[in-house]
């Protein structure tokens, strides 16, 4: 639904150059919620703003719903008719809501329809319908200043949906909200994604956001996507930083001559008694250092950190046994080695 290839953005100001995006290839499938996570300054906002060409990419292409937007953009700095039409089919919500304070809630939701040239009657019907969808039908005549942050973001979402977009872009939509409100806004986005088949690309610096609603995720660092995939793919990727962050387990080794491994269970692997089998088969004592069950992207996932006696070399066979059972095994300590080797 959204594809970027080789997307590069270099900001030039007063002779200084900042490469905010450095060849980003992103692929968001139709109907999924895709989260891009990264620290402040990683280039997330630049990425999402390049998707609807609020920011002109320095190089690379963006296509949304089969339309190559970079081709529509033309060469001048101003957005031509074609690009503006394409933008009207992409909804966008913002961290600071960006509602017009001079307009009522209903008039704010009607604004995209005014731009599309919809008739007055149809506009108000549609606006009221959308306000109902986001649970704010009683606030139609209020002004944004009279609303709470969560309500403002609901108006922002209703407004973003006014043009019947297939794609919703969300730039830190919950970052200005308290945890409770964040949950309700995320739930709303999830519902809209399900009910309307809306494809959602959201960027965030909060892992919880990805954990609660994303089907797929990408990790951004220094303008590059360093990891990406569906959440279950990521969880099944040994050494995945995103997986570790999404689903952390704690616990330290009790001595030097021990091997600590993280076992991730997904699906039916979670129901088999593999740990006791391991213990019996190889006659070893296993201590459990930490464990957690959680729901990630709507699936039950279990993770357990266990300790085997002896150094890694002595445990190659038991670890192999666990891998054969279809479990994902990360050897703690080895992960750092792998990463250092890659650098």
């Amino acid at each position: 639904m959204i594809t970027t290839s080789g997307l590069t953005k270099v900001y030039r100001s007063r002779g200084r150059e900042v490469t905010a995006l450095d060849g980003v290839d992103l692929h968001v499938r139709e109907g999924e919620v895709y989260g891009v996570i990264g620290q402040s300054g990683a280039g997330k906002s630049s990425l999402i703003r390049c998707v609807n060409l609020l920011e002109r990419p320095t190089a690379g292409t963006v296509s949304v719903d089969g339309h190559d937007l970079t081709a529509l953009a033309g060469r001048g700095p101003r957005a031509g008719r074609e690009l503006r039409r394409a933008r009207s089919r992409i909804g966008m919500v913002f961290q600071h809501f960006n509602l017009l304070s001079s307009r009522t809630v209903q008039d704010n939701v009607e604004l995209p329809l005014e731009i599309l040239g919809t008739s007055g009657k149809e506009r108000s019907r549609k606006a009221l319908e959308l306000l109902d969808l986001v649970g704010l039908s009683d606030k139609a005549k209020a002004y944004p200043a009279q609303l709470s942050g969560g309500q403002k973001q609901r108006v922002g979402i209703a407004r973003a949906l006014a043009g019947d977009p297939k794609v919703l872009l969300s730039d830190e939509a919950t970052s200005a909200l308290d945890p409770e409100t964040t949950r309700s806004i995320l739930q709303l986005l999830r519902d809209l994604n399900r009910q309307l088949g809306l494809t959602v690309l959201l960027i965030t610096h909060e892992m919880d956001v990805v954990k609660s609603i994303c089907d797929s995720a990408a990790l951004m660092e220094n303008g590059r996507i360093v990891e990406s995939g569906t959440v279950s793919e990521l969880l099944a990727t040994p050494g995945s930083e995103l997986a570790a962050a999404l689903f952390p387990v704690g616990g330290d080794a009790s001595g030097d001559d021990r091997t600590v491994i993280d076992v991730t269970f997904q699906g039916d692997a979670a129901t088999r008694p593999v740990i006791s089998q391991l213990s019996r088969t190889y006659n070893i004592d296993i201590s459990i250092l930490g464990a957690a069950m959680d729901t990630v992207a709507g699936r039950q996932v279990g993770r357990m950190r266990i300790e085997l006696p002896g150094v890694y070399e002595e445990n190659v066979v038991p670890i192999g046994f666990l891998r054969e059972q279809g479990l994902q095994i990360d050897v703690v300590g080895e992960r750092e080695l792998v990463k250092d080797g890659a650098k």
Binding site: A86, R87, S88, I90, M92, L99, L111, P112, G163
Partner: peptide
């Protein structure tokens, strides 16, 4: 607020 300008641009509004 420049954010408001961007919001309208993102809706497909012209200058």
């Amino acid at each position: 607020d420049h954010g408001l300008v961007e919001a309208v641009q993102a809706m497909g509004g012209n200058t």
